[in-house]
């Protein structure tokens, strides 16, 4: 008698777990199918907004390959290229979009797409004061950063006080990204 009850109990436990698992999976498939297209559109809009910030004259943005965009301005004139690059920051991955001129000699600007840096310190890499330093920065040689002083050479930027690691991470991501893209374009 007791044995039979225990078997029943085990069966009930397995049933309960299975039912919960199936229902949970089914609900999540619905949610997933509903949100994925929307999320994709969100990411695209975000990228487009960032590119338009870097190239205000942009009229057409063409995705020529993964994470690489050709930006055209008025009268079909090529305004430049934009590409996405990522790397490790202080607290996680930093994802940037970087715009360069058509000849690959200087940066037109950069925007932060994703980062988990410390609010108030590292997160300032997305602030306009830090980002402005990259506008028209030559990339004919490697970008360098300096601490607590004004840049003296044209290829230098000033790191954010208290967030050297995040600043350095951005510089490294851009340097590596530029190298990578150059190799692929040639």
């Amino acid at each position: 008698m007791i044995k039979k009850r225990r078997e029943n109990n085990t069966l009930r436990i397995i049933m309960a777990l299975a039912v919960v698992g199936i229902l949970s999976g089914a609900l999540l498939v619905l949610v997933y199918n509903y949100s994925i297209p929307k999320i994709r559109v969100n990411v695209e809009n975000e990228t487009e907004r960032a590119i338009k910030n870097i190239f205000p004259q942009a009229e057409k943005i063409q995705k020529t390959k993964d994470d690489f965009f050709k930006v055209t301005g008025a009268e079909n004139k090529v305004a430049g290229y934009a590409f996405i690059a990522e790397g490790n920051g202080y607290q996680g991955i930093i994802k940037l979009i970087i715009g360069v001129d058509p000849k690959f000699t200087e940066i037109k600007g950069m925007e932060v797409l994703e980062s988990q840096e410390t609010p108030g310190l590292g997160a300032e890499i997305a602030g306009s004061k830090f980002r402005k330093q990259f506008e028209n920065l030559p990339i004919t040689q490697k970008i360098e950063y300096v601490k607590n002083q004004k840049p003296t050479k044209p290829n230098q930027i000033e790191a954010i006080t208290g967030a050297t690691i995040s600043s350095r991470a951005v510089v490294n991501i851009i340097n590596d990204g530029v190298n990578e893209v150059r190799k692929n374009v040639k």
């Binding site: 436990i13 309960a16 919960v20 949970s24 999540l28 949610v31």
Partner: peptide, 29 residues
């Protein structure tokens, strides 16, 4: 069943959390 209530509760909670997460990503990016 009493013995597995905690795992079952946790799965139910995790399901709703995933739903909330995807909803936020879709509508409040």
């Amino acid at each position: 069943p009493r013995q597995v209530r905690i795992p079952i509760f946790t799965v139910i909670i995790a399901t709703f959390v995933t739903a909330a997460d995807y909803f936020l990503k879709a509508n409040f990016f």
